[in-house]
Design a protein around this nucleic acid. Sequence first.
DNA 1: ACTACCATACTTGTATGGTAGTATGGAACT
DNA 2: AGTTCCATACTACCATACAAGTATGGTAGT
Lengths: 228, 228
Amino acid sequence: MKELPHSSAGSAGSNVYAQLKQQIVNLELVPGTTLSEKEMSVAFQVSRTPVRESFVRLAQEGLLIVLPQRGTKVSLIDPDLVEEARFMREQLERAVIRLACQSYPEKHLAALERNLELQQESLRLHDGRAMFELDEEFHRILFEGCRKLGTWSVIQQMNAHLNRSRVLWLKTDPHWEHLYDQHRQMFDAVRMQDGDRADRMMQEHLTLSIANLSVLKEKFPDFFVTAQ
Amino acid sequence: MKELPHSSAGSAGSNVYAQLKQQIVNLELVPGTTLSEKEMSVAFQVSRTPVRESFVRLAQEGLLIVLPQRGTKVSLIDPDLVEEARFMREQLERAVIRLACQSYPEKHLAALERNLELQQESLRLHDGRAMFELDEEFHRILFEGCRKLGTWSVIQQMNAHLNRSRVLWLKTDPHWEHLYDQHRQMFDAVRMQDGDRADRMMQEHLTLSIANLSVLKEKFPDFFVTAQ
DNA sequence: ACTACCATACTTGTATGGTAGTATGGAACT
DNA sequence: AGTTCCATACTACCATACAAGTATGGTAGT
């Protein structure tokens, strides 16, 4: 078969996985959508095997629900899981930023500053998509500087749920300026090695970030789990 | 706990996954062992497809390393990952037990007490295997009572690495009595709603539990990653 | 003795046909 | 009209065949 130019990166299975995951997290694949191996195999121009492989991985992350012999659908957003993900992030990020205030490599400090500049630039351009990614990277750099990238990647898994609601939130009312300010203040706190202040800022940052989940539930009721 | 359809027994793929995972965590499959889809398919009397499915899932958890067209091997224990898992557990469990001290269902409190009794019984019988599982369940019940089971299951993933070193530790010098005492004291603190004491106990509990990783590295050098 | 080459026997990755279970719609029956 | 039954068209699951990359050991050439 002819090699498609875009599919050269990695195996077919990994490509399907990555693309599906992105579509799910970006809500291009609406929660509740029913998929099928066959359907996706024709869409991605591959056989069912790599599609099935990606389904297995996505199911393990809770993004797909596979019902044997019945079908596969994109999972609904579970508010309890979202809150748990927020809780988890809060605990771990507060602990990490306290570590960062004790000692943090100069190299990563510079990376944070560079990231903040890019945030400012994206803010000026009202580029929400870029802000979203820079936000993610800001926090990732924090973990990286503390040599806690394994922790970060585990968070990411649970984060898939949190991020879907954040994407929804983005569509309604993004307070990017406010988040930028908080990032800036956290950066300053790390540089000044002020652990208590950094902790306080992070807590506020991650508490407020998904404050009004109920608003989203009202606005997009079909996307959420109702009965628990 | 919401049972993911995939994790339930029944399908051949899930069975292979569960059995392989258990063998890996129990170190019956020694770190570094090379496996192959074909080999396992004859061992489990199934075709390569479900075996491959289990490989994909285990690889995502970091328990298997798949090298395309070369082979698959059981991952070595990464001391940095073990420490990260410990770090993660410490932060999350301390936060959870503080929650438990604020409010905790009577039902789960009773479950904890029953668990402690079983621990005492296993202690008397010197049944290390049972203690290991009761230890896990004790902590799980704590999360369950705080409605943080999703967090627990995410921890479990990272815990696979931590548990392998704990199994090693079990083979050398298990201080089960000490751990039992700590469990008992944590239980008392939750019942008395003494958050500070519970926090302190949990921190101690999870700090000491893998104190001597370097000892294990000397005793079982082949099981660990050397260069990072 | 040493090097370059290549057949061969592995490995994982992919495609495809068949199986069993499930939802669905229409026909036959009450 | 309402209910039961069954053919049909799905589904995920599994087995198998093939493709493609890689390690290895032997061999021919220098």
